[in-house]
């Protein structure tokens, strides 16, 4: 299962400057574990010491915020697109 993941700027050093990478997983949690195997160190940046997603990171599956889905348990399928985006201001 290949899922396209868009990597935000602060993490692109870990992905050798790649903006878009491929990874596998049946849900977001597994996807993060798989990303960690491919790009060691990335999990620590996405999750805090307790393994929970950091609060200033928003993750979207096919443009929908996972907080409207099932958070880390949100299921993924082949061809899904995942974006990892830092929270930003607005108005």
């Amino acid at each position: 299962m290949a899922i396209k993941v868009r990597i935000p700027q602060p993490l692109q050093k870990l992905t050798k400057e790649k903006v878009e990478v491929e990874a596998k997983g049946r849900n977001i949690q597994e996807l993060i574990e798989d990303l960690e195997k491919r790009f060691p160190g990335i999990k620590m940046r996405l999750c805090d010491e307790k393994g929970k997603l950091r609060r200033f990171i928003n993750i979207y599956v096919n443009e929908e915020d996972i907080r409207f889905l099932k958070m880390e348990k949100t299921t993924l399928k082949d061809g899904d697109e995942v974006s990892i985006i830092p929270a930003i201001a607005g108005g």
Binding site: P8, V19, E63, S83, I85, G90, G91
Partner: peptide, 17 residues
């Protein structure tokens, strides 16, 4: 906003927010 943050990574503009 989500779209803009993706645009902001790609284009080197001053995105005020």
């Amino acid at each position: 906003n989500r779209l803009c943050s993706e645009i902001a990574t790609k284009y080197k503009w001053a995105f005020v927010n």
